[in-house]
Amino acid sequence: MTSIARSVSFRAFSAIRSSYRVTVQMPRLDRRTFSGSTRVSVIKFTKDHEWIQHDPSVSDIATVGITAYAAHALGDAVFVELPNLDTEVAAGDPFGAVESVKSASDIMSPVSGIVVETNQKLADKPSLINKSPEKDGWILKIKVSDASELDGLMEASEYEAYVKK
């Protein structure tokens, strides 16, 4: 987890966010009741402005995207570079990139694992990442190799405080 927990407090994009007011929109929690127990997806956030949604009780596959804050700061996406399926990544490795306003910005993997699905809608329509960064504009699904890595990531409230700093 060292790559995520780097002890530096800078925030990328903060200087280009201009007058954007921070409103962190939360992905909808996926609550399902099954056999009397409540399963709750975990949603965590990284300092690199990604979100990861995972329900370890259902499967070891998590969904990853960038936050509304990041999507706004980057500006209009013109291309989303998606990794090949079966790419194996370590937490903190770049596994894709968003291009906006002549800028290439890497997307870092929040956890270690293997890429099992990429959002093909983004290939045809990169602007989805601006319109719906935390829902339809998800970037990929990853088979998590060590679920405990999620513990080191930020809760929604912590992330909100992080981007407001």
Partner: peptide, 11 residues
């Protein structure tokens, strides 16, 4: 012409 590369710490 200008182009940019952005990461969390350095750009």
């Amino acid at each position: 012409g200008s182009a940019f590369k952005l990461t969390r710490l350095r750009s």
